[in-house]
Amino acid sequence: MDYTFHWRPVWKRLPELIEAGLLTMEVAVLAMLLGIVLGMMLAFIRMSGRRELTWFATTWIETARNTPALLQLFFFGFGLGAFGVHLSPYVIVLCALSFNNAGYLAETFRGGFQAVPDTQVRAARSLGMTWGQTYSRIIIPQVLKIVYHPMTNQMVWSVLMSSLGMLVGFRELSGETQFAASQTFRVFEFFAITAVIYYVIVKLILGGSFLIHWKFFRKGEG
């Protein structure tokens, strides 16, 4: 083994890497929020039973779940380019991640809705609540509690998937690392530190998720 590790170039770039790590978190969280909204809509559409709409939602969900995230990313990046739609790397990654998150979350939400008994809807309705009130105050809070852990997992996946942004020229943590590595030729060192940063980000998110769970859902447990 005649390789000398050079860590100094990495330390010099560390502030930039951490800043890029924040960008990673930003895009992952945004994609997650969009994914939750879209996934909720897809779940509702799929449960509504209208044929054309169901077909649309099913296509979305099955495509998101059965093709690689990288392919979806390329689709938003290069595939749309064929129609003259050129998006910035940030938007490409955000769209692809939201698309993917929505597909997975829709199935999660559907399972969650099925776990809440139908009688709850009827009970709330007979108490004089409107549909909107029933769903926003009775059903969805229960569903969110049921699907909280799968949602946390999806959030972690969202962070991990955002690393694919480097392949469409997005300068988040991975893209920044590749850029810095190509300038200094210390590929191993840079990617080792990046791996550590990703580990820390994932742990931060799990910690945050635990705190949110403790704050909102601790009542009525045990």
């Binding site: 083994m1 390789y3 972690v156 690393s163 694919l164 392949l167 590929v187 191993f188 791996a195 990703y198």
Partner: peptide, 23 residues
């Protein structure tokens, strides 16, 4: 846990560049 918490693409690049280091 580390293998699960680090993106696969980083793992791939890391190990692809690590194997030559150990000859």
């Amino acid at each position: 846990d580390m293998f699960r918490s680090v993106p696969l693409i980083i793992q791939l690049i890391l190990f692809f560049n690590f194997f030559p280091i150990i000859g």
